[in-house]
Amino acid sequence: MSLRLYWLPADPRAPFPPAEHALRDPDGLLAAGGDLHPQRLLNAYRHGIFPWFNDEQPILWWSPDPRTVFHTDGVHLTRRFRRTLRGSGWVVRADTAFARVLDACATQPRPGQDGTWITDDMRAAYLGLHRLGHAHSIEVYDGASADAALVGGLYGVAVGRMFFGESMVSLASGGSKTALAALAFRLRQWGWPLIDAQVENPHLLRMGAVSMPRAEFLDRIGALTGQPGRIGPWTDDFGHVEARVLAGD
C-alpha cells in the first residue's frame, strides 16, 4: 500500500492526484501528508476529497467509492419524530456557535469510537475556514432566548452551491436530526441540491442518505462548486427555522 500511496508536497497549491487513484482497501484512501492550509482544504473539497486521521497518523486524504449523500429534498424524519417536533420549541440558527458545535462533535462519546478524529490541528483548521467564511455550523437551541441551551448541531464546508458535511452531534435526543433537517430545508430553498455525508452508517441511511458512485459524485460537485455560493457568515441569510416547521403538514 505504501508504494501506491501518493505523498503531497509542502506547497498548499499543489494538486491532488485524481480521486480515481484512491485505494480500494482501505476504501478511498488517496494521499497522505501536506498540511491543512485553507487553500489546500478548499481544493480538496472541490475535488471530492476530505481529510480524516488521528493523532498517531500523518494527514490522510480520502475519496471513497461510493459516496454517501443526502438530496436536500430527501431527508427523512420518522412519523413519531415529526409528531415530537410539532410540539417543540426548538429553534435552528447558523454560525452563532461554531466553536461550541465543533468541540461538542469532538468530545461527544460515540459507540465503537475511541477518541476523536477532530484533532487540535483539525480544530484549528476548521476554525480558520470558519473565520474565512467557508465553514459553517448549524445550531439547534431549546428556545429563542439568548440564553437558550444548545441541544444539537452540525458543521461542514460550503464551496459554491455544495455543502460538505463533516460531523454532527446531539446534546439532547433528536438534536442532530433536527440540525440536518433544517440545513436541508434551507439549502433546498437556496437551490442547493446535495449534502455530502462522506461515508454511510445506519443512522444516515435511516434519515434518507443514499449511495452515489464516485464518478457521478465528482461530476455533480464539479458543476456545483463552480457556481456562486455564500461566502461569509450565514447567520442572517439562514435566519431561524422553527423545528415544528420541519414536521410538515
Results as ranks from 00 to 15, higher is better:
Leu3Tyr: 06
Pro9Trp: 04
Asp11Ser: 07
Ala14Arg: 06
Pro15Ser: 12
Pro15Lys: 06
Pro17Lys: 10
Pro18Arg: 07
His21Asp: 14
His21Ile: 00
His21Phe: 09
Ala22Tyr: 02
Asp25Cys: 13
Pro26Tyr: 10
Leu29Glu: 03
His37Ser: 14
Ile49Tyr: 00
Trp52Pro: 03
Asn54His: 15
Gln57Ala: 13
Ile59Glu: 00
Trp62Phe: 03
Trp62Pro: 00
Pro66Ile: 10
Phe70Ala: 08
Val75Asp: 11
Arg83Lys: 15
Thr84Ala: 14
Gly87His: 14
Gly89Leu: 11
Trp90Phe: 13
Arg100Pro: 00
Asp103Ser: 13
Cys105Arg: 01
Ala106His: 10
Pro111Tyr: 06
Gln113Gly: 03
Ile118Ala: 07
Thr119Gln: 08
Thr119Gly: 08
Arg123Thr: 08
Arg123Pro: 00
Tyr126Phe: 15
His130Thr: 03
His130Asn: 13
Glu139Leu: 09
Ser145Lys: 12
Ala146Cys: 06
Leu150Ser: 12
Gly152Gln: 04
Gly152Ala: 14
Gly152Lys: 04
Gly153Ile: 11
Leu154Asn: 08
Val157Thr: 11
Phe163Gln: 04
Phe164Met: 09
Phe164His: 10
Met168Pro: 13
Val169Asn: 07
Ala172His: 10
Ser173Arg: 15
Gly175Phe: 07
Lys177Arg: 14
Leu180Met: 15
Ala181Arg: 01
Ala184Cys: 14
Gln189Glu: 15
Trp190Val: 00
Pro193Met: 12
Leu194Lys: 01
Asp196Cys: 05
Ala209Ile: 06
Ser211Lys: 04
Pro213Glu: 04
Arg214Thr: 02
Ala215Thr: 12
Leu218Gly: 03
Leu218Lys: 02
Gly222Gln: 02
Gly226Ile: 02
Gly226Tyr: 06
Gln227Asn: 02
Gly232Asn: 08
Thr235Arg: 15
Asp236Val: 15
Asp236Leu: 14
Val241Arg: 01
Ala247Arg: 07
